[in-house]
């Protein structure tokens, strides 16, 4: 699970030791048995109270979105999602943007990262810095600065330039920090440079080396980078709303005024979807479960 924690935290604070940690997991001295159980009780109480705080609004969503007539429970709100064409469009649009973002991010990041490791290690810090830089940028600031580009695209690139799918261009920037970290931790777990050397010395071309030798070994990192990107794009509101594109979050917000039940239903569905994605990745993506030990250069 280290991957998601690492990926979604953005910054790694005080790099952790992978296996030396959690002394609290095994309280050492037996003579302090009573203290131990006291702290055990405290742990459970804190856990219950804080998790309750975190879970109550989610329970609220379930309860609210399953209200039927006269106090009955029903899934009508969920069925009604499909009676709002805007909502369906918003979901489809966001999924399309997510797919484009993943493709673009991988095309941009994987060859660049492999190349820096294999050929120009001195550029590694530069690439890392640039990838983490968006974390220091409030999304809304990015929108303010990107407006001229979108205005130009809207005026000069016809239907393509005015399409919401162009949001993928900026979403690629937003997901860079998360995707970079995911792929980077996967690259650290294999000897990328040696693999590339071996492949090259056996006569493979660079594209082939990257696609057939490196990429299969990075699939854990690539998978979690993609999942994080998808989740981020599905949750993105700031940029799409200020550029007036009807993505999932924008439609949820707009519909909330007319039919809050459906908006809550869609929100809950999207949160669960993201949760399942992240959980599955943490569980089953090999190579993604490397706890981040490296400290990261600060993008300030």
């Amino acid at each position: 699970m280290g991957q998601v924690s690492q990926g979604s935290s953005g910054f790694q604070l005080g790099a952790a030791e992978p296996h030396g940690g959690a002394f609290l997991a095994q309280p050492p001295s037996s003579r302090r048995g009573s203290r131990r159980s006291a702290s055990g009780v405290a742990r459970v109480v804190i856990l219950v109270v804080i998790l309750a705080f975190l879970l109550v609004p989610l329970v609220g969503m379930i309860e609210f979105s399953t209200r039927g007539d006269y106090g009955a429970r029903s899934l009508d709100s969920y069925a009604a999602i499909f009676s709002y064409p805007n909502m369906v469009d918003g979901i489809v649009t966001s999924l399309e943007i997510a797919a484009l973002t993943v493709l673009g991010m991988l095309a941009l990041l994987v060859p660049t990262m492999v190349w820096t490791v294999v050929r120009v290690p001195r550029m590694r810090r530069v690439v890392e810095f640039l990838c983490l830089l968006p974390l220091a940028f409030p999304a809304i600031v990015l929108v303010v600065g990107i407006v001229p580009i979108y205005r130009w695209m809207g005026q000069n690139l016809g239907a393509i330039g005015a399409s919401p799918l162009t949001l993928a261009l900026i979403d690629i920037i937003l997901v860079l920090p998360y995707s970079y970290r995911a792929i980077d931790s996967s690259m650290r777990s294999i000897d990328t440079a040696t693999l590339a050397d071996a492949s090259r010395s056996l006569g493979a071309s660079w594209p082939r080396t990257i696609l057939q030798i490196i990429v299969p070994n990075l699939r854990g990192g690539i998978l979690s980078a993609s999942v994080l990107a998808i989740a981020l794009v599905l949750g993105e509101y700031t940029i799409s709303s200020l550029l007036s594109f009807q993505t999932l979050q924008v439609v949820i917000f707009l519909l909330g005024k007319r039919d809050p039940y459906v908006s809550v239903a869609v929100s809950f569905g999207a949160l669960i979807f993201a949760f399942v994605l992240l959980f599955v990745i943490s569980r089953f993506a090999p190579g993604a479960v490397h706890r981040g030990q490296h400290t990261v250069e600060e993008p300030a």
Binding site: S65, G235, I252, P260, V264, F268
Partner: peptide, 12 residues
């Protein structure tokens, strides 16, 4: 990934 959706969780 919350954003707008968390606001709706609190409305609900």
């Amino acid at each position: 990934f919350g954003g707008v959706m968390l606001a709706f969780a609190f409305f609900a």
